[in-house]
């Protein structure tokens, strides 16, 4: 009997403990792209407030699914949901942080920020029209570079991803042929090339395969020391990818709280804007007001100077202040701030 009693007490203590703990934990799931940043924020936030954040980077699609079925406190998605989807599933959505996608190349002798491409050449390369690096259309943009007579190997993301969604949106927006032949989405039917799994998979294939080109989040290009290209943006300027050009693009989005901030910031017409930029988003369930208040508290903390600093350390661009205030206004209006 004594043993039984002890066992019962142990079980009760355990459950009591885990219940008490559950109150202090926020559960989230979704996009892999902001995962390093969300963990870094969560670590710091936990140190300051004691609130734990448990974020599973299962992919944007998974994040949307999980929040729709209400199994997590918040979901995260790289591409924004449209108004109809938000309304249908009774969600709220806001942008949290900005990221940029860059083209990485492996051409012996060519370093970062040397090769210049524009949306048309990128489109033709990924359609398989431009087959060699010394194609006249690439040469026209890079008169001073000595480009080799080698076949281009294209590397794309094999897994469905927000990165692909943004990159194909950028191409579909500027290149009619791409829109008709391939279209845009988290995973598309690429006409040429090989597929790497995840940002790290693409980075790896490009690093290993001479004369290849691929697209990855900027942070991965930096971490892997890959040569990234410059791009001609929508206003005709040659820009380089950095936090400044990402934020510049983010400023000009048509952020409408009525549409739950659904917008694209690719190909923004501004002198210094990086053309393949996107915001990553947070989704919460409308009816869970109390939980949402806690979620919002965390993400508002992330909007602070301290949060911005952590973001910049990891090469994510913080939202412009005007947009942060719009998001705060949106929270207030929905009674979760």
């Amino acid at each position: 009997m004594k043993v039984l009693k002890f066992y019962l007490i142990a079980v009760m203590v355990f459950f009591g403990f885990s219940l008490a703990k559950a109150e202090e934990t926020l559960n989230g799931a979704g996009a892999t792209f902001p995962y390093p940043l969300y963990s870094s924020w969560a670590y710091q936030y936990n140190k300051e407030t004691g609130v734990k954040l448990n974020y599973q980077s299962i992919g944007s699609g998974g994040g949307v699914r999980q929040i729709t079925s209400r199994t997590v406190d918040f979901g995260a998605s790289d591409d924004a949901l449209k108004l109809e989807e938000i309304e249908k599933n009774k969600l709220l959505q806001w942008p949290q942080v900005i990221g940029g996608i860059v083209l990485v190349v492996n051409i012996p002798g060519i370093k970062s920020e040397q090769l210049v491409l524009d949306s048309n050449t990128v489109c033709k390369i990924f359609l398989g029209d431009i087959k060699k690096w010394n194609d006249s259309r690439i040469k026209a943009l890079n008169k001073s570079l000595n480009l080799p007579d080698n076949d281009i190997t294209i590397v794309y993301r094999s897994d469905g991803s927000g990165t692909t969604a943004v990159f194909t949106h950028y191409l579909a927006e500027t290149c009619k042929e791409f829109k008709e032949k391939v279209g845009e989405g988290k995973s598309v039917n690429w006409p040429v090339g090989i597929g790497g799994k995840g940002n790290e998979g693409v980075a790896n294939y490009v690093k290993r395969t001479p004369y290849s080109i691929g697209y990855v989040e900027f942070a991965y290009a930096k971490q892997n020391n890959l040569a990234y290209t410059l791009l001609v943006n929508a206003s005709g300027n040659i820009v380089k990818p950095d936090l400044k050009s990402f934020s510049e693009a983010a400023k000009y989005g048509d952020y409408n709280p009525e549409k739950h901030f659904y917008t694209w910031v690719t190909n923004v017409k501004s002198k210094g804007a990086w053309p393949i930029t996107a915001a990553t988003h947070i989704l919460v369930a409308r009816e869970k007001v109390d939980v949402n208040k806690k979620v919002v508290k965390f993400f508002d903390w992330a909007f602070s100077k301290k949060g911005d600093k952590l973001a910049e350390d990891l090469i994510y661009a913080p939202l412009p202040d005007s947009l942060k205030n719009k998001v705060r206004e949106y929270w207030r209006k929905n009674g979760i701030y």
Binding site: I58, G59, S60, G61, G62, V64, R65, S158, D159, G160, S161, K186, S187, I194, G195, K197
Partner: peptide, 18 residues
């Protein structure tokens, strides 16, 4: 040539099949 298999396709696309 590069190609794909059933299980590889699943591993790649299951999480984001929206």
């Amino acid at each position: 040539d590069a190609t794909t298999t059933v299980t590889v396709k699943l591993a790649n696309e299951f999480t984001e099949a929206d």
